[in-house]
Design a protein around this nucleic acid. Structure first.
Lengths: 124, 124
DNA sequence: CAGTATCCATAGGGATACTG
DNA sequence: CAGTATCCCTATGGATACTG
């Protein structure tokens, strides 16, 4: 059986060997806050304070940490204006848009089905 | 401006309010091992021992815990045959296949781009 | 084979206070 | 406004040993 799918080798090689780069990137993208920040930025750039409010429940520490990783991975661009008071905008890069294009369908499905999943879960 | 996207309300309402069910399901799906187990099962059912080998680096404890959550959420079906030695198969449910259909494009993109992302990261 | 039980370490992450 | 710095706690998760 020949499978053309890029992940077809998973059954023989294992799912993303622990040391390969994909694991690191995957961990960043699927980190607790990474997904939410990416989704938040998917409709346009946001300032630090806006991100804090939009991503409900995130602490300053986690926002800073998450943004640093996403910027380092090239998903998010940081635009700091040296004004007083300071103004910093965060926006998706082209790479970030490619990523969220694949992330949003997943998020849509989850939000659409979460209620059914959770209520059904309570029954069991 | 009218946005038809299901997530369009994010900017006004925040990204998935902390207490909503979506957050819980999202955490399960994007948990460190959840994604990898789902991807591993995306090409067919696997036994416990096969999963352990295929999902590189997972401990027995985490495999058990991850499977319990995925089964409870209805993404994975557990089929235990009362034979000696015991044989237990895990497979995606219909809901699980709906989910992985959205997960695989994301994983493909990540595996395809991870190397570039990580090497570029080292430069900075 | 397919798990459970137990112990233990560490890092994820919250709260608060402070700064350019 | 946009962050650091610090303290501190608990949940995540690894290693090992055991069981039906």
């Amino acid at each position: 059986m020949v499978v053309s799918h890029p992940l077809a080798r998973l059954l023989t090689d294992g799912v993303l060997p622990a040391q390969c780069p994909s694991r690191a990137v995957l961990d960043h993208v699927t980190s607790k806050w990474g997904v939410l920040v990416l989704v938040a930025l998917s409709e346009g750039s946001l300032r630090w304070g806006e991100l804090r409010r939009v991503v409900d429940g995130i602490s300053e520490k986690m926002l800073a940490q998450t943004l640093r990783v996403l910027v380092a991975d090239g998903f998010v661009a940081r635009d700091a204006r040296p004004t007083i008071p300071p103004r910093v905008d965060y926006a998706l890069t082209e790479r970030g848009r490619e990523l969220t294009a694949r992330l949003l369908p997943l998020m849509d499905w989850i939000t659409a089905n979460a209620e059914a999943i959770v209520s059904e879960r309570a029954r069991s």
